[in-house]
Design a protein around this nucleic acid. Sequence first.
DNA 1: CTGTTAGCGCCTTCAG
DNA 2: CTGAAGGCGCTAACAG
Lengths: 334, 334
Amino acid sequence: MASVTMADVAKLAGVSKSTVSQFLNKRYHYMSEETKSRIEQAIHELGYSPNAVARSLRQKKTQTIGVIVANILHSFSTEVIRAIEDTCHAYDVHVIVCNADNDPQKEKKYVEMLRAKQVDGLIVFPTSDNKELFNGLVAAHFPLVFIDRLIHGVPVNAVLADNEEAMRLAVNALAESGRRRIGLVLPPLLEEITPRMERRDGFMKAISEAGLEYEEAYVAAGQVEEAPHFLADMLALPTPPEAVIAGNDLVLYELLRSIKQQKIDVPEQIALIGIDDVTFADFFNPSITTVAQPTFAMGHKAAELLLQEINGGKKHSEIRTHRFQPTLKCRQSC
Amino acid sequence: MASVTMADVAKLAGVSKSTVSQFLNKRYHYMSEETKSRIEQAIHELGYSPNAVARSLRQKKTQTIGVIVANILHSFSTEVIRAIEDTCHAYDVHVIVCNADNDPQKEKKYVEMLRAKQVDGLIVFPTSDNKELFNGLVAAHFPLVFIDRLIHGVPVNAVLADNEEAMRLAVNALAESGRRRIGLVLPPLLEEITPRMERRDGFMKAISEAGLEYEEAYVAAGQVEEAPHFLADMLALPTPPEAVIAGNDLVLYELLRSIKQQKIDVPEQIALIGIDDVTFADFFNPSITTVAQPTFAMGHKAAELLLQEINGGKKHSEIRTHRFQPTLKCRQSC
DNA sequence: CTGTTAGCGCCTTCAG
DNA sequence: CTGAAGGCGCTAACAG
C-alpha cells in the first residue's frame, strides 16, 4: 500500500508540510519556482497522492453525496441516478446509491449510515413513512432534495414530474383517437405515494375535462403481479374499456405480458399507453405510445439544487417544488 | 449540524472517551452495567452518532468499495452492479459506482479518485488500456477483482461468463431448428475486449463443431449504430443467412429496430437469438430466444471475492478466473 | 474495569 | 514566501 504521506514529500523536497499543503491547494501565488518544482518532483518520485479521508476529517466535507432510491427497478430511477452521477462527477463529487426497496426501515438505516459517513447531502426518492427523520435533517440544516415524490410537511426542494399533465397527455391522445372508455392500472395506492396519487387524480380530472365518463371499474390499483387480473376483469365487463393506461413501467410490463398470453390485439381490441418511456417502446410490435418523463433533466436539476444548497447554503424563501413537463411519444399502440 | 462528538458523550456520562469508544465497539464484556447504561443514555440524549470519517482515518478502512464499469448502458452492467450492492450492503459496506464510458482515461481518473478516497477495494469492468495502472495496484496489494473482462498479464481474480459456451448454446439451438447459415453481429473488435473476442472465437468454434460452414460475410462487427446496415447487407447476399445472433443487448436493440423498419419476419425470414436476456424478451412479439448470463451470481461472486481479499488478504495461489455458465432461454424467435 | 496518552494525515492560523 | 503548532473525531495500547 502506498502509504506515503505529506510529511514524506516535505522531507524529500526539503520544505515543511504546510508548504506542500499550500502547493496541493494551488495557493502558490507567492511560492518560489524552485520550491514548486522541488515539491512537484518529490510528489512524482514518491508516487504521493493525498489522503481524502484525512482531508475530509479536517474540512468536514467529503465531496460525496448519497442517493436513496425507493425502488431501483424502475427505469425512471436508474435514468435519474445516471443523470445525478454525471452531474456530480463533473463537480468531482462522488455518489453513493442505496436502494430502500420501498421499506421505510431500510430508508432510515441508510440515512443514518450516510450521515455517519458524513456525506455532504442527500437526494432521496422518499418512502412515505419517515417524516420525522427528514424533518430532523431539515432542522439540522442538512442539505436534502427530494425527487419523484414529496412528503407533505417536510420543507425541502423537490423535483417532480407534472403527473397531472402526464395523465392529461395520455387521456387526450386516447380521446383524440376516438376512445371514450379509458382504463387505468396503477401500483398500490395504500401509502400516499405522490406520483400514484397525482396520476390517479390527474386521470380523473383529465377524463372529465375531455368530457368522458369516469367509470370506477376501469381503474385498478394493486401489486404489479396482479395487473393481468385487472386487465382480464376489465375486458370481461359488459362494456369493457377501449383503452388502458399503464401507471408506470413495471405495470406496463405486466400488461404486455398478459396481452401476449391472452392474445389480445393492440390497438384494435384495446389501445395502450404507458407512463414512462421504455427502451423497447419504439421497436415493439406494436410500438408503444408512452408519456416520457424528462429523466435526465430531472436528475440533473436535483443534483444542481443539492450542490447549490451544499455550497451556498439555502435561503428559506427558495424552497420549492420544481415541476418538469412530460411529453407524449405517439406510436402505434393507440 | 449535529456536531456532537465522543467527548461530549463522555463528559455527560462522566467517563472518558475511550470508555465510550469501547462501548461503541461492543467491547463491554467487562464494563459495569451502570457505566453502560449511563453511556447509552448520554448518547441518546445528545443524539450522538459516531463520525465514520474519523474512524476511517484511524483504522485505515472505509467500509466502502468502488466499482468502475466500462459501460453502464448494458443491462448486464446494471444487474451486476445491483448484485454487488446487495451483497456489500449485507456486510455494511458501501459502494461507489463510476462509469468509465469505455474511456481508459476516465477509468484511470476514477481509479485515482477512488484510491484517494481510500476505498478498501475495487471491482472493475476494465477497458483494455490500463495494464500498467492495474499492475501497480496489484504490486501495492490493493484488493482488486475484474468482472466481465480480463486483461492478460494482470494477475487478479476475475469473474466471467463462459462466452464460448454462450455461443455454443446459441449456435446449437439454431442448428437444431434446422438453420445452416448463421450470422453474427458484434460490437467493434478493435480493442481486445474479452467477451467480444471470446464470442467471436466461440462462434467459429461452435459453427465448426456443429458441422456448419463458416461464412465470413455472415459475421459483422462495428458500432452498434451500424447494426442495421449489417443486417441489410447480409440479407442482400445471394444466399443470405437464415439466422442471426446479436452479440449483446445493445446490438439486439438495433437489430430489432431495423427488423421492424424493414418489416422482416422473425423467425420465418430470419431467426434471431440475443446474448443477454432482456426485460422484454418474453413478452416481445415474437418473444426472443436469448442466452442469459447469470448476472446476479456473477456480481455476488465478485463482491465475495473482493470482500474476502480485503479481510483475509490474498494467497497468490488462489488467483483465478471464475467462469459462470450461461443458459438458453428458448422462445419464439428461433 | 476505566483513564491517559499518543497519534491517523491533513489543513489553517500565526509567527518568522 | 515558509515553518511550527494545534486540532478535526476516533481508536489502541498501556497504565492504573
